[in-house]
Amino acid sequence: MQGATHKVEALIFDMDGTMVDSMPWHAKAWVEYGRRNGLDIDVPHFMRRTTGRTAFECARELMGREVTHAESAEITHQKESIYRELFGAEFREVAGFRAFASSAVARGLKIAVGTAGDKHNIAFTMSNLRMTPAPLAIVGGDEGLPGKPQPAIFLEAARRIGAAPSRCVVFEDAPFGIEAARRGGMLAVAVCTTHSASELAGPHVIAAVRDYNELANSNFLETLDAVA
């Protein structure tokens, strides 16, 4: 972690792989989706190309051509239903997340979520997490914004909570998300649940950790000059 003090007013969290340890179950869901539909999907390669992108963008990548919104909706419904069934049985947060977010709020920081996930996965995640307090805003991937690495989702999250992008820290587990934070003029923390610190590196990345317990134990929040 870098030792510099940053004036920060908000933390914006990606959801899958960042708030919840869900990425292995997304991978399993794509394997099962392929099996059911007779598709030979190179899942690791596919996820490297799509993690952080919207459902419509993922469907287009999967089919290797333009798709209709109806096709995208059907692909998304099938795959995400499989995902929720699989992960629901073993749901878990990234270690220490809820306690960390609660501590951040107690220090006067605003909390928002910026995810490529759709409203169904957002509802599934939030109902299982039961965050207290709840995020001030959640921006999803089915709201018509371009997915990551474009910064639109994070910028909209910052707009909704009235935070300047330069005073936001994005928490991300994927390279596209880290890049989206950079393009949005935001600082970032790399949450290394699915990628290595070197894969999530950048001049704007102020910490790289395995989970939120590691952040808590290093007094990360105390290094931020929060604007209450």
Rank of each mutant, 00 (worst) to 15 (best):
T18C: 01
V20P: 01
D21K: 01
S22H: 03
P24Y: 05
W25S: 10
W25I: 02
H26L: 01
K28W: 11
K28V: 10
V31S: 14
V31R: 14
G34W: 01
R36E: 11
L39I: 14
L39F: 06
L39A: 14
D40N: 12
I41D: 06
P44C: 08
F46D: 10
M47Q: 07
R49P: 13
T54F: 05
A55W: 04
F56W: 14
C58T: 11
C58I: 06
C58L: 10
A59H: 12
R60L: 13
R65Y: 07
R65H: 09
A70T: 10
A73S: 15
E74L: 15
I75F: 12
Q78P: 05
Q78G: 11
E90V: 12
F91M: 07
R92D: 13
A95M: 08
R98S: 11
R98H: 08
S103H: 07
S103W: 04
V105A: 00
G108W: 07
A112D: 01
V113H: 06
G114P: 04
T115K: 07
A116K: 02
D118I: 02
K119E: 12
I122S: 07
I122W: 08
A123V: 09
F124C: 06
T125C: 09
R130I: 00
P133M: 00
P135I: 00
P135L: 00
G140F: 01
